[in-house]
Design a protein around this nucleic acid. Sequence first.
DNA 1: AATGAATGAGAATTCATTCAT
DNA 2: CATGAATGAATTCTCATTCAT
Lengths: 293, 293, 293, 293
Amino acid sequence: MNDKKRLILDTAIKCFANKGYHATSIQEIADTAGIAKGSLYFYFKSKEHLLISIFEHGFTEFMTKMQAIAGDSDIEPRERLIRLTEVQFEQFVENHDFIMMLFKEHALHINEDMKQFLFGLRAQTIETYRSHILAIYGEEARPYMLDGASLFSGLNHEYSQYVLFAPESLDFRKLAEFLADRLDDVMFSMIAKRPEPILSEAKIEQFAEKAKMFSFKKARTVYDEISLLRKLIEGLQLESAQREDLLSSIQVLEAEFDKPNPQKVIVKGMLAVLKSCKEKEIRQVLQHIEAYL
Amino acid sequence: MNDKKRLILDTAIKCFANKGYHATSIQEIADTAGIAKGSLYFYFKSKEHLLISIFEHGFTEFMTKMQAIAGDSDIEPRERLIRLTEVQFEQFVENHDFIMMLFKEHALHINEDMKQFLFGLRAQTIETYRSHILAIYGEEARPYMLDGASLFSGLNHEYSQYVLFAPESLDFRKLAEFLADRLDDVMFSMIAKRPEPILSEAKIEQFAEKAKMFSFKKARTVYDEISLLRKLIEGLQLESAQREDLLSSIQVLEAEFDKPNPQKVIVKGMLAVLKSCKEKEIRQVLQHIEAYL
Amino acid sequence: MNDKKRLILDTAIKCFANKGYHATSIQEIADTAGIAKGSLYFYFKSKEHLLISIFEHGFTEFMTKMQAIAGDSDIEPRERLIRLTEVQFEQFVENHDFIMMLFKEHALHINEDMKQFLFGLRAQTIETYRSHILAIYGEEARPYMLDGASLFSGLNHEYSQYVLFAPESLDFRKLAEFLADRLDDVMFSMIAKRPEPILSEAKIEQFAEKAKMFSFKKARTVYDEISLLRKLIEGLQLESAQREDLLSSIQVLEAEFDKPNPQKVIVKGMLAVLKSCKEKEIRQVLQHIEAYL
Amino acid sequence: MNDKKRLILDTAIKCFANKGYHATSIQEIADTAGIAKGSLYFYFKSKEHLLISIFEHGFTEFMTKMQAIAGDSDIEPRERLIRLTEVQFEQFVENHDFIMMLFKEHALHINEDMKQFLFGLRAQTIETYRSHILAIYGEEARPYMLDGASLFSGLNHEYSQYVLFAPESLDFRKLAEFLADRLDDVMFSMIAKRPEPILSEAKIEQFAEKAKMFSFKKARTVYDEISLLRKLIEGLQLESAQREDLLSSIQVLEAEFDKPNPQKVIVKGMLAVLKSCKEKEIRQVLQHIEAYL
DNA sequence: AATGAATGAGAATTCATTCAT
DNA sequence: CATGAATGAATTCTCATTCAT
């Protein structure tokens, strides 16, 4: 990577970490980096793409080291988990600003891709912990592997904050061992006492489902929404050409939702057509319908 | 509280929870609430104050219930912690959008007050857990009370996500008990094995210090500001023509402020000239000087 | 129409007439109208839409008067053509700036709709002249109706320039009569001497075809365009979610065009989805496909 | 001419013909030509000059052939006009993109020279036609030579469009003859019927005058400018605070210019204050004053 | 109380032009 | 000659806030 590009990237990370993505202007990044605003656009085609680049670089750098350890089967599982945690903390320090940025704006849903990516990341973390737990504690631990993974993730996340704010006062190796010991504590206890687990594959799945299609609400059925929409549009004063367009898209929409497997694209497309109406109320209804996707 | 005000507040919470504070426009809130943009300003004097109001209401609602339990000494400590956790989850569901908003934009540092407030909140949570730990596990647990509090906080936070996204599939009482059991696991283990604690009062203090003072300002006089300005400008690499322009406007500025009745126009004019410097720091100083008018 | 909206519209027409669409900035329009830049956006959602509004209003105003005359069968055909021409000149003066704008930037192909509209306009003019010629000169003139219409259009266009720049020195009635006399001259001559006509339905059609799909590198069928689109999108680096969306909309698009009566809305909708790609080349292909509607 | 220069020129013509001058970026031309943006500036000192070069080359190429014919007194006048027209059409095909560009953006008034040039071109065309008409139809045609020239120009222009869009389907010789025949029709008719002419030398002159001076400036002294400024500002409806600000800056301005060595900074500053007025006229005056620095 | 038109500062982005290599 | 990185002014557009009604 180009020096200047790197400079911009690093500066942007710092700025985003300080004030958040939205509160940081391109001008600010350029000023801080000591370059002209236009130059930034030579390297990154938009603010959004700058953020995406940050993520790409941040994670590849971060992940390569992590995965080298995670995949090293020479190391015994418990030690591997400890090393993983230790290296994670080291990486936190090394990529302090990047991680800080993530901590600050937990959900940087700039676009759908980003959302999917961040969501997938979390899923992967839990997955890694789960497999380590199975490897460390054996088949007996299977019912608790998801709870164990979540518990460890929680502990990890909590101490990460201390790592981020005052890294010099912590011995990462010791901290990782400490956390592994605590995982031992809860795992051995659960294996011994056999409480009912909280999390199951099904629940995690359910959670994933929900989290993904968030920002959606329902209150009315799609059909209610669609017929409300029709009424609203009929009430507008429109050119006959536009009116016809809108009403036929509503028809298509209805037909699509009637099918056993409505095609997402068609719904999206019709909504896009309907979005040519700027009416407040209509927009709202469209958002609601969008939520059914 | 007025109905309309409540409506705006709830709508805003929902919007902020969906898209984040910065990505939500006042227009959007007004539209969603079905009121005029101007009306919003009748109830809240700015977007910032709207957010602050959200926090005030969100937390008072949230905290009153929590504190009723936390302070009820009739309940035995362990049970109290469980109830506290349970009620917390219930509150998460009840104030779903508000909590979602907090989760999404972890650090809403709109202004210094907000920052202090959010920071204090975290401190208070840890404090509550700590005192409960001491009460539950006795003096032996004292060296581990901070680690215990942090561990519990981490577990809590992790499962909170499941609570937020799929509350209907979780039994909060059972979950709270489960988490208390896990706290038992780690506390008893630590008390038994006496490992070296990770956190100490001193370290927490140090962390607090670091986290708090990330940005700060100090009051200066106009003359301080002006001389700071001169230094900054002298430090810049400029064309001699521009440099001269800038330095002479500083001179005029100083001379003007020295007069018994500085002419506002001249000050304004000189500031306008100086604004040709796009440097962030200089801009800031100019803003400060502008404030003296 | 709102006063302020009208003011903005009129000002914009004037500015566009003076310097052309591209060379006129929004700031300039706002300044000239004596309003704030933001206000303009309250009434028109973009510069492009401002232009579209100008066209809509300009033409409806213009056309209503023209069509009242064109459709008045009480008036004898030759007199009707004269009156049409006369009123056209009067309208040129009344809507001076608007017409000036059209003269200046002959092809304001801001978007495909605009292009189609302007093109249709010309077709309609020729059509009007043609029917008048048939009515005036009878069946004998049929072989020359297209040439006649073009000749008259040419004469008309040429003298329109004088009308626009120095209307006060011209008597529109006399000018219209003069032009009608000249049409007589050429029509009678052609009817008498029966030269080979230059234009035929087929040639006009051919011309229309060419002119419409201009800016196209080569004429392709919809299917070619769609498969080109697929290739382009497959070549992009996209998140799997978006990629899937795009590819399935292409599939729907193909399926729709395969049907005997493709539904316009569905095509529009799919195009709307595909427009999320901002790539220049893709955009172009989308415009081409749009043209098939 | 250098190969590379020719390449750039041709590419630019093509781009300008496709999208218009303003809508085409230098980057686009460079990309299409397959050269670096900077290289373009080696051959042409600006986008404007590139356009001017296009015109120069386009017209010299175009005109040399035309003028060879126009000036060939061996050819009998009517035949000369036909040949002229024929060659014109041939040239249209040969320089298709260049002509297309002219048709698209009818008035490329990039600067005053360009305007004069394009205007002169039109005048010259009319002049050529006029002299041919006199030569063909004799002194009797004198009263109608201007109308005849305009009529022929109109016919010519109209059919040029067909030539541009579908050249392959037209026989240029036949078309030219056809148009000459139509000129015969109208000229003989006018000579016979002696209608009142529409155009006269005086009117053409008047038209030229009007068309030429659409924008103009005249030099004033600083003091004139300043007092104009004061009048303009006094004519504005302003808050008393702002009004005072502005008027006092005008006073300072006047005082400063009265001094033997006006301080540049102060002038600049005052102008900056005055720029808070967004009025177009005021802005203009400010620019003029700025020029005195 | 409520509205929505109006504002203008500031945001992202584009682009002609320059310049060191 | 050629390049492409760098610039910064200008442009379109957004949005929190104000204000007359």
